[in-house]
Amino acid sequence: MVSTIHWTEGHTSRSARWHSESGVPLPRRTVVADDRTTAKDAYRQACEGTALLWQGDYHNARQLLQAMRRRIPRTPSTPTVSPSGSFHLHRRDSGHRARVLGKLLVLLDDDYTLALHRAPDVRRACLEAYGPPKEPREPTAVSLRELLGVIGAHQWRSKGIDVPALGTRIHPHYGVFAPTRGEYVDLVSQTPLPPAPRRHPAATTAFDLGTGTGVLAAVLAHRGIGRVVATDISPRALACARDNIHRLALTERIDVSGPTLFPEGRADLVVCNPPWLPARPVGPLEQGVYDPDSTMLHTFLTGLPTHVRPGGEGWLVLSDLAEHLGLRTRRQLLDAIRSAHLRVTDRIDTKPRHPRSQDTTDPLHMARSAETVSLWRLTPAP
């Protein structure tokens, strides 16, 4: 069913298709806003649930969005709040900020043209994120905040992200987790291979579960693994991985399969880098960060014994940030490994290098500064 927003210009009623990648429901009320709209009025109406359809200058709309952001109060951190409490307050504040800022809308024409003064050409970016315009062709209303994300994703996709372990760049697509945190890539690149792949890499098979951009599959092929099967449950990720594998001229060595987690058969090495935080994502764009009830983690652990060849290994790449936030304990992780009839043969640790780990203004700074990223080497228990 197509959702439609309605508003009035002068004495004329107008409508447009409503679109939200995060699944935000249809605004209850929509009014027109332009260069005369103040941040105070825009913020008040947005907090009341009213959407503002912008018809002024594009750059003024961006400035208004920033002014509205500055008006949103943040819950002050306090030592009396537990780590998990701080996380949930942070999630609550993030959700409120997204709801308020998401009320500033823009209108895309039926070919994704943004017909605002001084607006950039966003047609290619929207085509990459949203796909071909839907029939019947009609204008579409989206939040400016989402559109800015679409534009940023297009720039990343065009420019790519440097991956030193590959000596080249990976090009993430909109809505696909980008390899901006290089420590987990380095762990897969530098950890010694299991005996069989180490002796005869060209004759071995590896699985990369939840491949995303395909970066870890490419790293495994770069290390000499003869055949890599990369899987994901996200159609966006599958398209992104195929695009990157093609760019890297690895299509003869890497098969991209899905939507599924485990492919058929067994492998000498099974690698999985699941989302690190056991919380519920708000919309599909957060699925690379949050794993509700650790579902993907447990699916990987329970399925590993039947998908790894004798003498092979499973590599679980996981941060302990969830432990520092009080969302999962180390005992729960170890119990899950044992319950899956697996044993830990080794663990290689590294510290994060991303800027947020050093940002003392981050409400989760204490947990982030203590974070360790680990590669757990797992084998079926005897």
Results as ranks from 00 to 15, higher is better:
309 R>F: 00
84 S>H: 08
157 R>M: 03
329 T>W: 06
128 E>I: 00
318 L>V: 05
105 L>M: 13
287 Q>L: 04
377 R>H: 05
173 H>G: 13
50 T>C: 05
370 A>Y: 00
280 R>D: 04
363 P>A: 07
269 L>Y: 14
16 A>V: 03
114 L>I: 08
62 R>Q: 14
277 L>W: 06
93 D>I: 05
346 D>K: 10
318 L>N: 06
81 V>K: 11
129 A>T: 00
349 D>L: 14
153 A>T: 01
197 P>T: 08
37 T>R: 13
348 I>A: 15
319 S>D: 07
250 L>H: 11
182 G>C: 01
376 W>L: 13
290 Y>H: 15
244 N>D: 11
215 V>A: 13
155 Q>L: 04
217 A>M: 03
122 V>R: 07
254 I>F: 02
165 A>Q: 14
361 T>W: 04
75 T>Q: 13
377 R>W: 02
255 D>N: 09
312 G>L: 06
49 G>Q: 02
132 P>R: 05
89 L>M: 13
52 L>T: 09
115 A>T: 01
157 R>V: 00
276 W>T: 02
333 L>I: 06
139 P>K: 12
350 T>E: 12
215 V>R: 10
113 T>V: 07
204 T>G: 10
212 G>Y: 03
216 L>A: 02
311 G>C: 04
95 G>C: 09
11 H>E: 13
176 V>Q: 04
181 R>F: 10
6 H>D: 02
294 S>R: 11
56 G>T: 01
321 L>I: 10
226 G>K: 08
222 H>R: 15
353 R>F: 06
219 V>H: 08
265 G>S: 14
33 A>D: 09
347 R>T: 12
255 D>F: 04
111 D>Q: 09
216 L>W: 01
258 G>R: 11
361 T>P: 02
266 R>E: 15
16 A>N: 09
325 L>M: 06
156 W>P: 00
250 L>Y: 08
298 H>F: 09
150 V>K: 08
